[in-house]
Design a protein around this nucleic acid. Structure first.
Length: 91
DNA sequence: CGTATGACGTGCA
DNA sequence: GTGCACGCCATAC
């Protein structure tokens, strides 16, 4: 039973289809807090699960945002899944 | 409980 | 497009 914001966020991010991306704000909204974009970032940063697709969460402006292993690695993963990226921005 | 920090978002110059 | 200030939320101490 998902009741905490963190758990909901994890569930939402886990549902993101391969090759697709979702902004922190969108995830936060789907999780219940439309203004919890920053909280989502904190949760993602705290998560260390390599099996968790936290790399599919980007900024609302199209930027890839950040990543524990470096944004370059994040971009590489997204590209591997079929996402279109120009520089550090999603197309 | 209060403060500081951070993988954000929006508005404005 | 770029840079800065403010607001928002979760977590660590």
């Amino acid at each position: 039973m998902l009741k905490t914001f963190t758990q909901k966020v994890r569930a939402v991010v886990a549902r993101i289809p391969r090759g697709e991306v979702r902004s922190y704000g969108e995830v936060a909204k789907l999780a219940g807090n439309k203004n919890g974009a920053r909280a989502v970032g904190s949760i993602m940063r705290a998560n260390h699960d390599p099996n968790f697709p936290c790399h599919r969460v980007i900024c609302s402006n199209g930027k890839v945002g950040g990543f524990n292993l470096g944004k370059e690695e994040k971009i590489r993963k997204l590209r591997s899944e079929g996402a279109k990226i120009s520089g550090d921005k999603i197309i």
